[in-house]
Design a protein around this nucleic acid. Structure first.
Lengths: 106, 106
DNA sequence: ACAACACTTGGCGAATATGCCAAGTTACCA
DNA sequence: TGGTAACTTGGCATATTCGCCAAGTGTTGT
């Protein structure tokens, strides 16, 4: 495996990994609807605010979200508008997978 | 957050997590082209065969790949045909992200 | 029967991830 | 100025992941 390909794989894996956590996925899904402050996300997830803040840091580091401070609050939004397609893809993978499993169990 | 949504998030996160590793992503990309035996994948990745075998177990457990033994060899293939779209999605996320970063650094 | 090949599994140490608490910063308001 | 709310960061304990080696299973070829 050449270096270039490995580098690309690493970057892609990092993006996937950043979303590969229930809370972070939830955050991303919410941000796909509209921007949110940490407070709102914290209440939604039901964890400690510090925990949510760290999840947001992970997403930010992966280039998925951006933050903007307005007054005392920090608003997060998706940096990328095309995440909807990714969700659809994951969904269709799940559907295919479920269908295959159903076939297999017949 | 209600239980049903949490359950869905967990399932989706599990699929993403299974692919969120450079070696596993590489495996999935290869299998998207054609089926492969463990041996071929091992050579491609350049790790111990036991390591590759465990990666394959992870993918199998997530419902992403299926295995079939033929003689002494075990062939793996994608269980789902629609993974190509997911790759495209990840790619476009990366492109958007790169473009945004370029804009931001102007 | 024996050796070689293709895997899988168990196990171990090292590295990473996760989530809470505590402490610090910054903004707002009385 | 003092208090409170909104965050972030550090640190710690616990849990999970990763990759190798060693050992075991099943298959092929001699």
């Amino acid at each position: 495996m050449n270096r270039e390909r490995l580098a690309k794989l690493n970057v892609k894996a990092r993006v996937l990994k950043a979303m590969a956590h229930p809370s972070r996925l939830c955050i991303v899904e919410e941000l796909a609807k509209r921007e949110r402050c940490v407070c709102e996300l914290t209440e939604m997830i039901g964890a400690d605010m510090s925990t949510v803040s760290k999840h947001l840091t992970v997403l930010k580091h992966a280039g998925i979200v951006a933050d903007e401070k307005r007054g005392a609050m920090v608003f997060y939004r998706l940096r990328v508008p095309c995440l909807g397609k990714l969700f659809e893809s994951v969904d269709s993978v799940l559907e295919c997978s479920a269908r295959e499993l159903a076939e297999a169990s017949k």
